[in-house]
Nucleic acid binder design. Structure first.
Lengths: 224, 224
DNA sequence: GTTACAGTGCACCGGTCAGTGTAGATTTGG
DNA sequence: CCAAATCTACACTGACCGGTGCACTGTAAC
């Protein structure tokens, strides 16, 4: 013990532990450019302490990424879980969940994690193993579970729920890479809402039942 | 003069010029880790020669990325342009184009470019300016142009063709990040075909006309 | 032949950084 | 109250790399 919350007069950066601070620095500077001196200074901790805890720079990187991936997945799963609150208006519920998933994807830290992964995946291929089980895979699976329930209840067309989940996820996140300019642009909540609405609209056209609210209007997919 | 094609006994790496070689090394090692000595050696060129041509390391990076982005965009635009060969079977034509776009996205060099962009966008925000006009933006726009023609001819539902193009692009590429594991996994042509077919199927359900071939079967979107 | 240009190989400088060593301060637990 | 463990501050090493200077070679034009 001895970190963060226990100690009183720390900066926010240090309050979350050295690995969280390390993630911020790694994401900002890149692995090679990030110096341990900078990480230690930003975490308000002696450089030696980091070596005591993590051994070397690579181990610190892996720990930082694992912690951040856990955080991101928890947020995603919480959003998908809201599909249990299905109260009769499928479109509204889907749009709500979609909006939250889009928000997760547009999150500053989400972009930072994705950037860091793309950047270092060549030098550290084993980062994939750290991410697998903590990333989009379980989220899509959980989404497939919810969609399967909805299909069984007659609110969606039958078929492979995994495929449906994949298509919905693609519709929600596929355009965000371009819209957010690789994470350098922050898009407004209104624009996020428009993306979610357009995605759900297309999804319901393709996977909704005739009885369901498939055809409202062609979404005015212009942004706000 | 003095590079590449003109000289006979060069390795493939050097045959394309120092900037192409530089891109390969930058993508493999990362900007900071890539040494000019390594680039020069791999390009079969003296380090000094690189400085004569590009001035410094950053300029070399920008030149390498610009060249690679041009190459990628040309390939994408060629694929979209095949939508002009519309011969009556919309689904077949769209799947053909979709398959080619998926292949572009899964291209080894395409992943390398995307990785490099994600990796260095923080250190070199101006890379976005280099990419804008050479990247997915013009491709989506060209796709919107083709879809507008198809809608006008009654083969697709009306509405904003830009939105339709964005949705189609999202369906095609949205699942590839996960499927290709950030570019470290090569997916088979059969799997690429399945992705394109599922995307086009969903797209036609949402944007096809009643007269069109909207409903075939729910695509058996299992991979091969 | 000579002038101009472009490339080559090598050695060098200045700076940076991971990781270690050490010695003193602080905390923790019994 | 003491001892073990942990943290801090700081100096140091060994290695690496961007960029430069220099002496030399090859080639094409006039």
């Amino acid at each position: 013990m001895g970190y963060g919350v226990v100690m009183s007069g720390r900066t926010p950066a240090a309050a979350a532990g050295p690995d969280a601070t390390a993630f911020v620095v790694f994401a900002r500077e890149g692995y090679a450019q990030a110096t341990l001196d900078a990480i230690a200074a930003e975490a308000r901790v002696a450089k030696h302490t980091i070596y005591n805890h993590f051994g070397d720079k690579q181990t610190l990187l892996r720990a930082a990424i694992a912690a951040e991936a856990d955080r991101a997945m928890a947020k995603n799963l919480a959003a998908v879980d809201r599909l249990r609150d299905y109260d009769g208006d499928l479109r509204v519920t889907l749009e709500d969940v979609g909006r939250q998933l889009v928000a997760c994807y547009c999150d500053e830290r989400g972009w930072a994690l994705r950037r860091l992964l793309y950047a270092e995946i060549n030098q550290f291929p084993d980062l994939l193993d750290i991410i697998t089980g903590r990333a989009s895979d379980p989220v899509t699976e959980a989404l497939a579970d919810r969609l399967a329930r909805l299909a069984l209840a007659g609110h969606l067309r039958g078929g492979d729920p995994a495929a449906a989940a994949e298509q919905l996820a693609a519709l929600l996140t596929g355009s965000l890479e371009a819209r957010c300019r690789y994470g350098t642009r922050v898009i407004s909540p209104a624009e996020q809402h428009a993306v979610a609405r357009a995605a759900v609209d297309t999804f319901l056209h393709a996977f909704g039942t005739a009885s369901g609210p498939a055809a409202t209007t062609v979404a005015t997919a212009a942004l706000a």
